[in-house]
Design a protein around this nucleic acid. Sequence first.
DNA 1: TGCATTATATATCAAACTGATATATAATAA
DNA 2: TTATTATATATCAGTTTGATATATAATGCA
Lengths: 182, 182
Amino acid sequence: MANEKKIDCVILGLLSHEELTGYEIKKRMDKTLKYFWGASYGSIYPALSDLVNCGLATKREGTENKRNKLIYTITDAGRSYLKEWLALPVQKDELRYETLLKLFFGNEQNTEQALSHIKAFEEKIKKELPYLLEAEKALKDYLDEDTAHKYYLITVEFGVKTYRTYLEWCEEAKKILTDSEE
Amino acid sequence: MANEKKIDCVILGLLSHEELTGYEIKKRMDKTLKYFWGASYGSIYPALSDLVNCGLATKREGTENKRNKLIYTITDAGRSYLKEWLALPVQKDELRYETLLKLFFGNEQNTEQALSHIKAFEEKIKKELPYLLEAEKALKDYLDEDTAHKYYLITVEFGVKTYRTYLEWCEEAKKILTDSEE
DNA sequence: TGCATTATATATCAAACTGATATATAATAA
DNA sequence: TTATTATATATCAGTTTGATATATAATGCA
């Protein structure tokens, strides 16, 4: 396991808190991590097999019912591996916004089209922001319940602050386009 | 060319302004688009071949010197394809920040480590912000020279605004961690 | 009670992309 | 003269996405 695959580290990070199935890992990620780190089943399930093969996690079958439920648990080696990765410097922070890409080539389309891309972006942000604010409130209310909460709060604050800035930018961007229209 | 590959659209967007070699496309992207859309040679060169095969671009050899320089030009079909893509709604805007990922799992490391990830992020942003401010000034000064400039300005403004917010967030994040230290 | 839908759950795969590497020449700096 | 940097194309293993297939359990509703 010298390959330093990000998906392995994410999964180990989630397993460090509680044992989970692949399906639950995907759900946890879609709920909280998706704002800064996404993952698909196509990466999660093979990674879980790799983790077990390398001794960083163990697999056992769930017994509650007959369903094919496979529960994964982190091992001591897995915890060590996670800690080592956390200590390494960050390799890459990447933004991949198709909205900005289409706006960059705005001169090849008409102003209305560019404006509609900005508006769609604005609506998406306005729709997601309440969830971040809700999470922010919950974490602030129960900050002392768990030492992990302040770390979650830091990432949520990132989302709240950037999303508010995005909305300000939308206003400015629309203004730049409509002012030059006259 | 029904596959709707992003790299094809980016290249056509750049070629819509001027004819370029693969190397020049990579340089243009690293200079201006990298803040919201990256690309590697491993995607650029195969995409250029595909574009020629599909009649969306033409290829000719540069004659200035003996070097193996291949210059690509957009065709009318290429312009149509680009315009069609620009008219389609945005599929995905994605953030992938390893810094936030490591901070999210901050409870598994010590506070000093988490703080050092924030500081490294802060330094990287502080180093890049001047380039954005420079671009912002240049575009504002020559906004009327080219109708494309206002679109470039919009994307630069996004960078300037978000980067300033990032720096505010760094202060807040450090405060959350140090306040809980006492 | 029956039927449809949604949630749970695992698994695979083609297509896309990255990061690294290989190769070679031209221009510039020491 | 030599070393380094810039120009330029090309390929490939490894990683990830997005879609799809499959199957059962739970829930809603008529």
